[in-house]
Each structure stands twice: as C-alpha cells, then as structure tokens.
Design a protein around this nucleic acid. Structure first.
Lengths: 202, 202
DNA sequence: AATCGAACTTGACACCGTGTCAAGTTGACA
DNA sequence: TGTCAACTTGACACGGTGTCAAGTTCGATT
C-alpha cells in the first residue's frame, strides 16, 4: 500500500497529471471526469496524457497509489497498530480509517466504477480492499486475544462485518446522502463497531 | 413501490423484454449488459426494444418496478408491519429485506451504475432508497416506541445506520466477496442490528 | 554549430455503445 | 382492399477511449 512511487516524484509532468486527477476526482466532480478534462487541468494535451498513462485504468490506479503516498497512510494507521488493548485498537482503527475516507472517496469511487469493466482496475481495487480488510482483521484479532470478541462471531466474520460497516459506500450513504457530519460519523462508527463486535459488558 | 404496472402485463412483447432483462441482469452477468444483448435475449430487434423503452434508463427502471411486482414486495414486507414489539419488527424487517436482496441485486446494481450518469435513473434509484429507508425508519420508530432504542441514537440516526448495515452493497461485500452463506447473513444481520440499535439488556 | 532524442503538440481515425431516422415487411382487422 | 400497428433491416450521429502519424521545441552531446 506504499511503494514510494519513484516515477511520480522524479517526473514533474506526471506529478502535475496526478495532482490534476486527484483535484478533479476529489472536488465533488460534476458528472464524469474524462481523460480530456484531466489533460486540460494538467495543462497538457490529451495525447501527452496517454504518453504517460496508457489507459484510464492505469491513471486511476496511479492516482490512488499517489494519494496514499501524499497522505502518509502508514503514518496515519500507526496509532492503531500501537494500541494496547483490543478495544483501543478498534477505536483507533475506526478513527484513522474513518478520517481517511473523505480524502479518498472521490478517487475510490472512480476506481470502483472502473473496476466493473477493466480487469486491471479490478485487481487494483481488490488490493486496496484486501489491505483495508487486513486492517479490520488486525483489530478483530486483537479483540479476540483480549477475549473481548462477541461470542457469536469468529474473528474473520467480525472483520468482514467491520469492513462493511465502515466501507466507503456506507460512508457515502451516511455523510453524503443522509447528511451526517464527519465527526458524528466517526463517533457513531466507533461506538457502533464496539456494540457490534465486542462482548457485551458483563 | 407497487403501482400494478398495466403496460407490462397487457403487452406480451414488453413482458418478454422485461423477463429477458431480469434474466440477463440477474444471472451473474458476465460484464456489461448491452441493449443489443437484451434485444437478442427477448428475440426482437434492437430497434423494437427502443420502440418500447426509449432509453436504457427507462428500461432499467421498468425492470426494477416489474421485479418488485412479480416478487410481491408488499406481501413480503407484511410480516414486518404486523409485528407486535419493536424488536420483532426489526427482526422481521431484516429477514424480509435481507431475503429480498439476492433477488434484486443484479438489477439494482445496473440501476445504481446508471444513476451516476442518467438523471432519470438517479431519480428512480432515489425512490427505492427512500422506500427502503422508510422501512428502516418504521422499524426504529417501533423500537423507540417500546423505549428499546439505544440511548446514543435518535430514531432517524438508527434508521440511517440500519439502512447502511443492510444495504445492497454490504450484502454484496459479505455474500459475494467474503462468501457468507445467505442464511448466515440474515442471522448475523438480525443479531447485529439488535446489538447496534437496541438498548443493551438491563 | 549541427544534430539527436525526449517530451510534447496537432489532427486524424477506429471502435463501441447509445440513441435516431427512414423505408420496408407482415399480419390482423374493418 | 386498404389501413394501422408492430416489427424489421440498415444506415448514421454522437461521445468517450484509445491509436497512429507527422510535426515542433528544446536541452544535452559531440
């Protein structure tokens, strides 16, 4: 999830392309974002864009990678790894991931849409899914180690549940459609994840 | 959600079109379903298809309507309305809706995708969202009436949470990607919804 | 100073899927 | 017999992606 993307840093045009892509994708894009839109925003011709990223799918994948890098996803997720108890870890994970969603959801949305047609995008999206699910699993494993996991659930099931509870789609539903403020979202997800996954207080 | 769709029943060709559409959309469609695919499956020309449904969006909307009708969605949801206690109502709702998802998810998926480009499809999808959310709200209201709602949540928030917990996307995640059996899904959602939304046992 | 190559430009074109248009065929019903 | 509706074939426009070919610009090489 963080392979210090040389190409982008060393090459000024590519950075501008990625920056333009993220800007368009991030800023509540009105309708679809076309390749030509991105080229225009980056101040180059459409063909130059294809010179750097041979397909829309590859561009989106690169943009998602780049997004993780500039946001320092690893640093962001560190507190979760450092937590002492399972409950703390769950809270920290939900806070970290929940806080990250607003930053990535535009790009993620485009990647998801692409994934339904392009196999390369599908693979990239699957990688990300796996990484997030892995984070969820780490939290539910920690919970299980503390004997704090709800008795009806295996750690695997709990991870799946957590993953779907704090999925990007669900965030969109709550924060974009239902109008929840981001703070309330994180708070409710932390409390909700605990109720959903942890053993009820004795 | 059930306006006894005259047109379809009275017109044999339309029924065949809708049947073909649902079949293609339902049967784990490999890749995108084109208008020409549907025409071929219905045994008519592409142009005849446009004669009945002037756009892909309108066809998908009609297919979704038709799907609700043949499945008797109202009858299906009746047990939920009849439940005595809030908890019963929640359980019945989750069971009914959760059992309905596998039948509609193919069509819903297509409609969702369409909604991001076509305003008419977006409106149709929003109607469906509203109807489901309304069902969720009815359940959480019943819970609240019994004084059984979790103290941290308003009935509105609880409905939003329930809606996103049992969303089609989440079902896809759990049952298609994570491989949960449908039975386990319903069971886990019933128990999970109760933990998430109801007041903890005293 | 001449030139080579990389990055970029303009402009054209193929492909695909949606949606439209026009002109013909078929068959039922009056 | 004529007419109307449903349907057919075949063509075409449009938008978006991706490709191809032929120039331009400019810095680095020798």
């Amino acid at each position: 999830m963080s392979s210090t993307d040389q190409t982008a840093r060393s090459n000024p045009t590519r950075s501008r392309i990625l920056a333009a892509t993220l800007k368009l994708l991030g800023g509540g894009a009105p309708g679809a974002v076309r390749m030509s839109d991105i080229a225009k925003a980056a101040g180059i011709s459409r063909q130059a864009l294809y010179l750097h990223y041979p397909s829309r799918a590859e561009l989106l994948v690169a943009a998602a990678r780049h997004l993780d890098e500039v946001n320092g996803i690893d640093t962001l997720l560190a507190p979760s790894r450092a937590a002492a108890t399972g409950r703390d870890r769950l809270d920290a994970w939900v806070a970290a991931w929940g806080g990250y969603i607003p930053k990535v959801h535009g790009t993620a949305r485009a990647l998801m849409a692409m994934a339904s047609t392009d196999p390369e995008a599908a693979a990239a999206w699957d990688d990300r899914r796996a990484a997030i699910l892995h984070g969820c699993r780490a939290a539910t494993d920690a919970l299980a180690r503390d004997g704090d996991l709800h008795p009806d659930l295996t750690a695997g099931e709990a991870a799946d549940l957590l993953f779907s509870l704090v999925s990007i789609r669900s965030w969109e539903e709550l924060c974009l459609n239902a109008g929840w403020p981001q703070d309330r979202y994180v708070e409710a997800m932390q409390a909700g994840a605990a109720r959903l996954l942890a053993k009820p207080a004795a």
